Computed example of a mutant assay.
Amino acid sequence: MRVLIVEDEFLIAKLLENVVEDDGYEAIGPVSTVEQALAYAPRADIALVDLSLSDGNSGQLLARRLIDRFGIDVIFVTGDPGSVQQGFDGALAVVNKPFRDEEITGALAMALDKRSRSIARRAAP
């Protein structure tokens, strides 16, 4: 599974990249803007997305584009989880900052399970 990391804080982005790779997934990025994320999106299966991006755009706006255009599952990684609940229901999960590695690992495992079930449904006669 290929995981796009969209995070504007360098140290957090590197922590996410380490967790993703330690879990055996391919990390794409990290990137910090909507434009960069959309450029890498065709290579990704899932995205870890911060709510506040360095270009001033909302992670929720990006998530809607990733879901609608590319069918990419989104997990929000945020220091402000309350703002996700204000009108966005498309994310698989919300992981609060500061996070533990296990929280990211669990969210990625849930995304992989969802993908596997979806593929199995499509393959069934």
Rank of each mutant, 00 (worst) to 15 (best):
F88G: 12
E102A: 14
T105W: 01
A93F: 08
A27W: 04
T33G: 02
K97F: 06
P81E: 07
N96P: 03
V19F: 08
E35M: 06
L48Y: 08
A111V: 05
I12N: 00
T33E: 06
I5V: 15
R117K: 15
Q85M: 08
R69N: 15
T78K: 10
D80E: 13
Q36E: 15
F70I: 05
L66C: 14
I46T: 14
S116C: 01
P125D: 03
L66P: 07
I46N: 04
L16I: 13
V95A: 06
R100Y: 11
E17I: 07
G71S: 10
F10Y: 15
E17K: 15
Q85W: 08
L16S: 08
I5D: 04
E35L: 06
F10G: 07
R69A: 05
S52D: 07
F76W: 10
L38G: 11
L62E: 12
F10K: 11
T78P: 06
P42L: 09
L53C: 06
V34I: 11
D113F: 09
R65S: 15
D45Q: 13
I28W: 03
V49K: 05
G82D: 14
R43Y: 09
D45F: 06
A120Y: 02
K114F: 15
Y40N: 04
P81A: 03
T33S: 12
D22L: 09
S83M: 11
D73K: 03
R115Y: 07
V95R: 05
R121L: 07
A41H: 10
G79D: 11
I119T: 04
V20P: 01
G59Y: 01
D45V: 06
I104R: 04
L92G: 07
F10V: 15
D22S: 13
L16P: 08
R121S: 09
A39G: 09
M1R: 03
E102R: 15
L112G: 12
P125S: 12
V3R: 01
A107M: 11
V77P: 10
A91I: 04
A111L: 08
I67C: 02
E9I: 11
L92R: 15
A39K: 11
R117S: 13
S54P: 01
G106D: 13
